[in-house]
């Protein structure tokens, strides 16, 4: 078996290394993520301003109110897919800065994978230098994962999500979850490919090519991170079913769950997300290499120390 393929030991090693580096670079990641979230928030606000200011100048506050009301009325009057697409039209440009923020994290991940360390300010260099590529790749991923939901809405119509149709709804949600997991796995190496200097389309192609060729390695790791995330959220979803509302211990459980929620959210954002970023960047680096060697196979091209020449000049 190739060193690029997966087995249980390799998977454990991949996860262990990614979490080790995520914890080791916790401060850089926390500071970097906070900084980049502020920039993202400002950018989204700026984008919104670009839309709102012309209306404010043309029609004043009434102009904006009319715009919002028209939007709401139009969306309400539209059915299923059309309403969904209208919302998508509004949401997609606003998603772009957020996608760049996530993509820029992969820049930090790459620095860690190649050199063990990173700096909080490093994320801003990736954010600005790769802005358009990361935004485009992020939007493609977003659309590929989200658009089928629109298609499902068209095919099944609003009734599929009605109470009478719970069977249909469950089947649709299950099918969509499998699809979304599969597609996100296929594209899980797109951001590392962008960071590696590839173009938008090449990055998508590389990600799909590597994920299919090394399906076991990419998907076992990707599913592990998703699985850890799901396990973390499980107590939050399960506790209302486990503790009856009439129970006298509801108050105590609420406190426990609230405390757990805070810990789970912090862990997800500041450890699990960086570990995922580091893990997928590392797997990309391993899978893309043509000339991979382990430390035991270490060799250096012979550059002679003895730099003695008997022919002078040029």
């Amino acid at each position: 078996m190739s060193t690029k393929n997966a087995n249980f030991r390799v998977l454990l090693q991949d996860l262990k290394i990614s979490f080790k580096f995520a914890v080791k670079n916790l401060v850089s990641f926390v500071l970097g993520m906070i900084g980049v979230l502020i920039v993202t928030g400002l950018l989204i606000a700026l984008l919104a301003l670009f839309v709102l200011v012309p209306f404010l100048l043309l029609g004043g506050l009434t102009g904006i109110t009319d715009l919002i009301l028209t939007w709401v009325r139009t969306t309400q009057s539209l059915q299923g897919a059309a309403a969904f697409l209208m919302t998508l039209l509004l949401v997609t440009p606003l998603i772009a800065p957020l996608m760049v923020a996530i993509g820029a994290l992969y820049g930090m991940g790459r620095e860690i994978v190649e050199s063990e360390g990173t700096t909080a300010e490093g994320i801003f260099a990736w954010y600005s230098k790769k802005f358009f590529s990361l935004a485009a790749v992020g939007m493609i991923q977003f659309l590929v994962v989200i658009v089928p939901l629109a298609v499902t809405t068209i095919l099944l119509g609003p009734l599929s999500f009605g109470l009478e149709q719970t069977g249909w709804a469950s089947a649709t949600i299950a099918t969509y979850s499998i699809y979304a997991t599969f597609m996100s796995g296929l594209m899980s190496l797109a951001f590392p490919a962008v960071i590696d200097g590839n173009s938008i389309l090449s990055s998508i192609k590389i990600s799909v090519r590597l994920s299919t060729r090394y399906f076991d390695r990419v998907f076992s790791t990707w599913l592990s991170y998703l699985g850890i995330g799901t396990l973390l959220s499980f107590p939050l979803l399960a506790w209302p079913l486990a503790v009856p509302l009439s129970s006298s211990q509801v108050g105590m459980w609420t406190t426990i769950i609230a405390a757990y929620s805070i810990i789970a959210v912090l862990f997800t954002f500041f450890v699990l997300l960086p570990a995922t970023v580091i893990g997928m960047s590392r797997i990309y680096m391993i899978l893309i290499s043509d000339n991979l060697s382990g430390s035991s196979e270490f060799f250096t091209e012979s550059f002679d120390d003895d730099d003695v020449s008997i022919i002078g000049g040029d």
Partner: peptide, 8 residues
């Protein structure tokens, strides 16, 4: 490309 014992 080289994998080191530390994982990088």
């Amino acid at each position: 490309t080289q994998q080191t014992p530390t994982g990088i």
